[in-house]
Nucleic acid binder design. Structure first.
Lengths: 189, 189
DNA sequence: GTCTATAAGCAGATAGAC
DNA sequence: GTCTATCTGCTTATAGAC
């Protein structure tokens, strides 16, 4: 699905516009104009505007699900699992900066696939929470409120798409390392 | 402006709908129906849909600006300033959960007031960054990348509106305390 | 693969009655 | 303060020609 097909070109262009203005504010004419064609021509490659959104969001949600599953079953410490989750978000976000905006802000406009998306998201958060709770009982992670930790780390990772385009000088490995430092170790001297 | 006037009622109802579906996907008819009146009746109290959005966003942006200014000029350590910024976000978000969604996701739909909003936001981030940099040179804050610290803390604080409604059992003071723990001290044991 | 033409409905907003 | 009626333009999507 991640080919250079005409459909994928349309999805890529749409994702860029969706990031700038949101799904609802972008029209089929906007997408067509950005591609240099007429709106009606889009329908030779996609079946509806909804079809575009579904492609963007479900692809990404499954990427995260697959990445989390690999981390979950691996035989490493829970702190190391947190590090790998951070790397997972950095890598996916760098490869899909525009698409991440739709995943974060336009998922509620999904129709047929809304429930499926919500299930993937819930499962992802459950797996994430489990790592934190296990790390806490292992004394790898400091005692505290696991919900606040989960929310705090995940909020930062989900917002990366807003920030990565502005810091193109920072290499992925460097960014992951810095994020791990801040999110895992805090900022206090 | 925060009175129980008809205009304020409209803005409040609109903010709730904007949080659920975003500014562009909510119609004047939606807002009117939620108030039990007809769309044309709204125009006796507001001049346009844009007028509603501007009211929501500029009010909040100025709340944050005023809060930051009070913290900036106060004679306390930089770590203590960070703590107070966290409390500022918790308090404003609890009082304006719906409105925070528009501030985060619909600011790009501002028209006349877009530049003004962007200036307030930039100044806010500059003040925040300055506290981190000063804290670092004072050895209150660990040496590291100040941009990553700023982005990481701010992302969490800006996402609070998504999370606070689900955790109504958690008191504001308790939430601030937990957030300070995680954001300032990290999660590692 | 793209076009023109067009359908059918919905958007924000105004005029004027009550 | 709310209503009905209405305007103008834009929305997603389809049919059929090239």
């Amino acid at each position: 699905m991640k080919q250079g097909t005409r459909k994928q070109q349309i999805v890529n262009v749409a994702a860029r516009l969706f990031k700038e203005r949101g799904y609802s504010a972008v029209t089929m004419r906007d997408i067509a104009t950005a591609m240099g064609i007429k709106a009606s021509s889009l329908y030779n490659h996609i079946s509806s505007k909804q079809d575009i959104l579904t492609n963007i969001i479900i692809f990404l949600a499954e990427e995260f699900t697959n990445g989390m599953e690999a981390i979950r079953v691996s035989n490493i410490s829970n702190i190391e699992k947190l590090n790998q989750i951070i790397e997972l978000h950095v890598n996916i976000t760098i490869q899909n900066t525009f698409e991440m905006a739709s995943l974060n802000n336009d998922w509620m406009h999904l129709e047929e696939r809304l429930e499926y998306y919500l299930k993937l998201r819930d499962d992802y958060e459950d797996n994430f929470r489990e790592i934190i709770v296990e790390g806490m009982s292992n004394n790898e992670i400091v005692n505290g409120n696991p919900e606040v930790m989960l929310f705090s780390i995940l909020s930062t990772l989900r917002s990366l798409y807003l920030w990565i385009p502005k810091k193109e000088d920072l290499k992925p490995e460097e960014l992951s390392k810095n994020l791990i430092n801040v999110l895992i170790n805090g900022v206090k001297a």
